[in-house]
């Protein structure tokens, strides 16, 4: 039995500590906003927060996160400036990578609230989007940070 604290809620799962965190979040707890993309930490679709820091859940076990606070896309409030900017900039296309993009952006902005263009690009560069929403992601982050946006 392993305990997990996700979005402020305590979960108990009857699994070995070696169980993969992404699959536990998605397939056991059905918090499906967190996505499987590559399984090797290369795409960022599975990005969550561990004590507020962005982390790739596919590279972690539930044993790794014992006693730590996990946040998933479902735990970011709807009125969070990043989510609101994502809507006003009409960012998502297919949407599959967007949970990871938003989680990375939220964690990044919490540490750097007025980032430069280059800092945003550097922070977001390892989260892949095949639809090509990168220009809008950039705009949305600038908007959420109060440094830009176009609409």
């Amino acid at each position: 039995m392993t305990e997990l604290l996700i979005n402020g809620k305590q979960y108990r799962v009857d699994l070995e500590p070696s169980a993969n965190l992404l699959w536990v979040i998605r397939e056991h707890l059905e918090l499906v906003g967190t996505k499987y993309g590559c399984g090797e930490g290369a795409c960022g679709a599975c990005t969550i927060h561990l004590d507020g820091e962005a982390a790739r859940s596919c590279q972690l076990t539930i044993g790794d996160v014992h006693g730590r606070s996990i946040t998933t896309i479902e735990g970011v409030p709807q009125n969070h400036p990043v989510k609101e900017a994502w809507i006003s900039e009409q960012v998502p296309q297919c949407g599959y990578c967007q949970s990871g993009q938003i989680m990375e952006a939220v964690a990044f902005l919490s540490k750097n609230s007025r980032p430069s263009h280059d800092e945003i690009v550097q922070a977001m560069d390892d989260i892949l989007c095949r639809c090509g929403t990168y220009p809008r992601i950039l705009r949305a982050i600038k908007k959420a940070a109060g440094t830009g946006g176009s609409r």
Partner: peptide
């Protein structure tokens, strides 16, 4: 016009193929 599918995709609530659960489902 703003896309109708965007709000749920921003909330992680869009249902993709991988997000299906049905009773008795195995992998």
């Amino acid at each position: 016009m703003p896309r109708l599918d965007i709000p749920e995709k921003v909330d992680g609530k869009g249902v993709f193929g991988t997000d299906i659960f049905i009773p008795g489902m195995l992998y």
